[in-house]
Amino acid sequence: MAANNPNSKEKKSVMQSVLLCCKLHISESRNREALESIQRAAKLDPETVIVNIFEDREYNRINYTLVSYVIHDATGTPIYCPLQQTVVAIAAAAYDGINLELHSGAHPRLGVVDDITVHPLAQASLDEAAWLAKRLAAEFGSRFRVPVYLYNDAHPTGKALDTIRRELGYYRPNLRGIQWAGWPHLESLPVKPDEGPDVVSRARGITMIGARAWVAMYNVPIMSTDVSAARRIAARVSARGGGLPAVQTLGLLHGEGTTEIACILLEPNQIGADHVQNRVEMLAAQEDLDVEKGYFTDFSPEMIIEKYMKLINAS
């Protein structure tokens, strides 16, 4: 049986059970021509489903949530997933239409295709997610000639994403007003990439690709332009600052009159949005600042599977 031509019964079974979710973060949300080209590329393969698109103009960033199935050989080894060709097609469109040197926004980034995370869904495993992440990394490095850093379960030692980002200066703004613009102007890469060249194209930057268990993105608006206060609050909410376990945060500008505590919930079933919301409200009150209700940037795994199944069955 060909890897990309399973019979219909087997194909239907895997399309319903062994699923991978790819979250693709691209550094652009204002260039409509580039975004339309990316959107066309994302729809080329009908067996990859776009479950969610989240645009943030202030951050100048767009996130795609893509889902598809995995095919295995007779030994149970994964050999094919439509997500690979879809992500590569999206990346090709992104690199053609976006120049990182012309990019600016309130969210940190190090590349045009800034971050790709693969999550297992349904009966898929982290091993299968890591398999796809490593295949993508190899193709990005050879085809697009961008340095690629693997993280979490795709990395040989499980190195965390935030550790690599810190080493590469991801969290250091390079423009007034705590904003990011152009390439960060690193003279050389302080850490050798896992795939691709050691030399960085300033137009394309670098790419992070990882695999890990589900994480949730939850952002809490603060009605103030005081970025210093937002960063103080963010530090005290995060695990690194002695706050909530398994929570990572950034305090960022977010439009006129507001800042935002952008959070990654590493164990959302243990430390969820309600914990974060309560902690931000408590700390903001100490700064005499008002807080709005936070929001997720994506659906839950259960909702993503449900949406995938509905879209697949409809098509």
Rank of each mutant, 00 (worst) to 15 (best):
G255T: 12
Q277K: 07
E306I: 00
T249M: 04
R57W: 02
A216D: 12
I304M: 06
P268Y: 11
N60E: 13
P120W: 00
N52V: 06
L175W: 04
D288Q: 03
E302Q: 09
Y149C: 12
L44H: 04
G294M: 12
E256I: 15
E195S: 11
N99K: 11
I312G: 01
A235V: 10
I178K: 13
V70Y: 01
N313P: 01
D226V: 06
R40G: 07
E281F: 05
S315F: 09
P120F: 00
E260C: 13
A285H: 11
I79P: 09
L186K: 01
E36F: 04
A34P: 03
A246G: 08
M303I: 15
C21P: 01
R232Q: 03
T75K: 08
A89E: 07
E195C: 12
L252Y: 12
G294L: 13
V49D: 01
R40N: 10
D153Y: 08
S315H: 13
A122Y: 00
P46L: 09
H103D: 04
S224T: 14
I264S: 12
F54K: 04
N278E: 11
D127N: 05
N60G: 14
L19W: 00
A262I: 12
I209E: 05
G255W: 09
I304A: 03
T117K: 03
F144P: 04
I38N: 01
Y64R: 07
S17W: 03
A160F: 11
Y295C: 08
G272Y: 04
E281Q: 11
A122V: 00
N152L: 11
L24V: 04
Q16H: 00
V87E: 06
D298V: 07
K43C: 13
T207N: 08
P193W: 02
H275I: 07
I50R: 00
D114I: 13
L253F: 15
Q277H: 08
I209Q: 03
A154S: 14
V87Q: 08
Y151F: 09
L189M: 05
H185Q: 15
A2Q: 08
S37K: 05
A203S: 11
L19C: 01
A229I: 10
S142T: 15
Y149N: 10
M1E: 12
S8W: 08
N313D: 14
P78A: 06
L168D: 04
G251K: 02
A133N: 05
L100W: 03
T297R: 15
M282P: 01
S68W: 02
N269Y: 11
L136H: 02
E33K: 13
R143P: 00
P120H: 02
I178F: 13
M208K: 03
H103L: 10
